[in-house]
């Protein structure tokens, strides 16, 4: 048995890949649910109901999808240029704490129309800075950015933990380490009354559209792709590799920082160290499931949010640990990798 590269990839197969991958992941996770002594189909039905069964749960799922779409875009844009930004989690936290600090100490008195855009930009900048460090280490000392971005996640979360324990601590939080709240004028407008759904979702979708355009229709998009496919070839073709990667890093880190900013300004209003249940890491799966396509990220972000929100409800009803959502998401990444492989290769005897 050996693998042979396909001459051309059938379009139907490429479109069906994520669906096949998710189906396979659900099948494997179904076995795990069955082993735990619960009917898998009923569990999945309850996950769907938990995510979309009511107005509240539907808006909650969309709210949860927002940071996932943003971190998914962050990973997608970087991975396409083979910049392995695994630091989305840390960048998210820096974006969040930047917003909390700026709004509570610097520009909290500004009117919404000025303050919100300013804070979003500041949050994105904070994320950018955190990614530029590992990129600099890669370009200057050829240090693999995978490990450095991963390690910086821990540094960033500790840094945030330190700030909300000291200078940014909210004195009214009964001793809990929690940052001071952002000003009311900093909160993103709600899309629907009586829900947590906010403008962040629109921002995320618009950015996905912009990114899809930039990647497919601009010189920069082409260069970034070339830098990923074959860096040496790209340099010979006149692609300024370093500069392209810096821009990619700015976009990627900026998006992850924005995810943190939006989570604070749209939902929480302040920062704690459990602001993100691993959005940065889930973003990697979101991006891979979408095959690094920005528009696909919107859909896979929604899928991931569905699992997380739905699993909470299912877990309460059936006694299956809600960690099953994380298992499904991780399995989807692995099955997606295999599925993509088989769109490129076929088995020959």
């Amino acid at each position: 048995m050996r693998f042979e590269r396909r001459e051309h990839r059938p379009v139907a197969l490429v479109v069906a890949t994520p669906l096949i991958a998710v189906a396979a992941a659900l099948a494997i996770a179904g076995i795990l649910i069955a082993i735990a002594g619960a009917p898998a189909l009923e569990a999945y039905w309850r996950i769907l109901k938990g995510a979309y069964g009511s107005r509240l749960s539907t808006t909650e799922t969309l709210t949860r999808a927002t940071p996932l779409i943003l971190t998914g875009l962050a990973a997608a844009v970087a991975f396409r240029a083979r910049l392995w930004n695994i630091g989305g989690e840390g960048q998210l936290y820096l974006g969040a704490i930047m917003v909390a600090w700026a709004s509570s100490h610097l520009i909290g008195s500004w009117p919404s129309a000025l303050q919100i855009p300013a804070l979003l930009i500041l949050g994105a900048l904070a994320g950018m800075v955190l990614l530029l460090v590992p990129l600099w280490l890669r370009l200057r000392f050829s240090v693999d950015e995978v490990v450095t971005t991963l390690l910086l996640n821990f540094v960033a979360v500790l840094f945030v933990s330190m700030l909300i324990d000291t200078v940014l601590k909210d004195p009214t939080a009964f001793g809990w380490p929690q940052s001071q709240s952002v000003a009311d004028a900093a909160m993103l407008p709600k899309l629907l009354a009586r829900s947590r759904l906010n403008l962040g979702l629109v921002i995320a979708i618009v950015l996905a559209l912009v990114l899809a355009f930039v990647q497919s229709r601009t010189v920069f998009g082409m260069r970034a792709r070339a830098a990923g496919l074959n860096p040496t070839g790209a340099v010979f073709a006149g692609v300024p590799l370093g500069r392209t990667l810096v821009i990619v890093a700015c976009i990627s880190g900026g998006l992850a920082g924005l995810a943190g900013a939006v989570e604070v300004m749209g939902v929480k209003g302040y920062v704690t160290t459990d602001l993100s249940p691993g959005y940065g890491y889930s973003g990697i799966v979101v991006a891979m499931l979408a095959n690094l396509n920005p528009l696909g990220v919107v859909l896979t972000g929604l899928f991931t949010a569905t699992m997380f929100v739905g699993a909470d409800g299912m877990s309460r009803a059936m006694g299956i640990p809600s960690y099953i959502a994380d298992v499904i998401v991780a399995l989807s990444l692995l099955t997606m990798l295999v599925a993509v492989f088989f769109t490129q290769y076929r088995i020959r005897r």
Partner: peptide, 20 residues
């Protein structure tokens, strides 16, 4: 497959499976 992505996938799977 890409060793980076596969390894991260294994990490995400192994840790979430542990918690489960």
């Amino acid at each position: 497959l890409s060793q980076h992505v596969s390894g991260l996938g294994v990490t995400l799977f192994a840790s979430s499976f542990s918690y489960y």
